[in-house]
């Protein structure tokens, strides 16, 4: 196990380097630059700006400097938000995204797995159809429709909850965005769980367990669910990375200070350093979470034995 951990971490380093390199050059290939905007600056001022941010240097020099910086944990200044460095902005926004994302994830797993299991156990009954209809609705209604709908109902008509804003990150401000973020995930997870659960319930070892006279509660809880969760676990790896890095739609609609917005806006703003910052954060998360998924597989599935 330790061997696997070390090996995977070592492989991660060159992977990251490749990702950084590709992203660094690709974002600079995009037309337009950080200082092109509606009110264009004079060429002299533009020169001052480029110089101030080292953008007048040859590309390879910039790349070298960037890599050196990243190695020292310095992601450079944001070209858009002049008063902050990329590191400061990501650090400021990450807790909000993680809080929101992990709550949504938790909600999605608990409800999604329960619904999915229920669907499988009562396969082709009214309950199953109800669950699956709900799931399909969850998948098909996009967040940018669901979120404003929620704010309209709970923020304005009922006036139970604030429409938007973060406050201190209390539950009143969290509830709607967490639900909006979790809904499509609940739907996916419910479908995944149902599918694999049905498969597992037909497996020989479940028949054996039942034949042994085990209580249905133990058959389902200890044996079936464990096997049925495997596809869910592998789905959860990248999904966790997605959720904890925030969602631009949710953050914009609910005015949440997370980092999700940077993933989209920094590219549109040609905020090169911020683009790189988000790429690095996301890449690291994906690498780590995939590793975690593999470790979990080890625990859940005796067939997967790491050599």
């Amino acid at each position: 196990m330790l061997d696997l951990l070390l090996r995977r971490l070592l492989v991660g380093i060159p992977t990251l380097l490749v990702i950084i390199t590709v992203a660094f050059f690709m974002i600079r290939l995009a037309p337009g630059g950080p200082f092109d905007k509606e009110r264009a600056v004079t060429p002299e001022v533009e020169r001052n700006l480029l110089k101030a941010y080292d953008l007048d240097q040859p590309l390879l020099t910039q790349y070298g400097r960037y890599l050196t910086g990243v190695l020292q944990g310095d992601f450079g200044p944001s070209y858009k938000y002049h008063d902050f460095t990329v590191g400061e902005l990501l650090r400021a926004g990450f807790p909000a995204s993680v809080k929101l994302g992990s709550l949504a994830l938790l909600l999605a797993i608990v409800i999604g797995v329960s619904l999915g299991a229920m669907g499988a156990l009562y396969q082709n009954t009214g309950r199953d159809y109800a669950v699956m209809t709900l799931a399909m609705t969850g998948i098909t209604i996009p967040t940018f429709v669901m979120a404003p709908l929620l704010t309209l109902i709970f923020g304005i008509y009922l006036a139970w909850l604030p429409v938007a804003g973060w406050g201190e990150g209390g539950w009143r401000h969290l509830l709607l965005p967490v639900v909006a973020l979790a809904l499509p995930q609940i739907a996916y997870i419910a479908r995944l769980t149902r599918g694999s659960m049905i498969e597992v319930l037909n497996a020989n070892y479940i028949r054996t367990a039942r034949a042994k006279g085990l209580a249905e509660r133990i058959v389902i809880g200890r044996h079936a669910l464990k096997g049925a969760l495997l596809p869910v676990v592998s789905y959860l790896g990248p999904t966790t990375a997605n959720l904890v890095t925030g969602s631009v739609v949710i953050e914009t609609i609910f005015g949440i200070p997370g980092i999700g917005r940077y993933f989209v806006q920094s590219a549109l703003n040609r905020d090169y350093t911020m683009v790189m910052g988000t790429v690095v954060v996301y890449a690291v998360l994906i690498l780590l979470l995939n590793l975690l998924v593999d470790l979990l597989y080890n625990l859940l599935d005796p067939k997967v034995q790491q050599r």
Binding site: T151, I156, V163, A164, I253, F254, G255
Partner: peptide
């Protein structure tokens, strides 16, 4: 001062008295 980038959210916040 709040950023309220999304115009329709801003309108809703105004309606809700936020």
């Amino acid at each position: 001062y709040t950023p309220d980038e999304d115009r329709s959210t801003a309108l809703k916040r105004f309606r809700a008295g936020e």
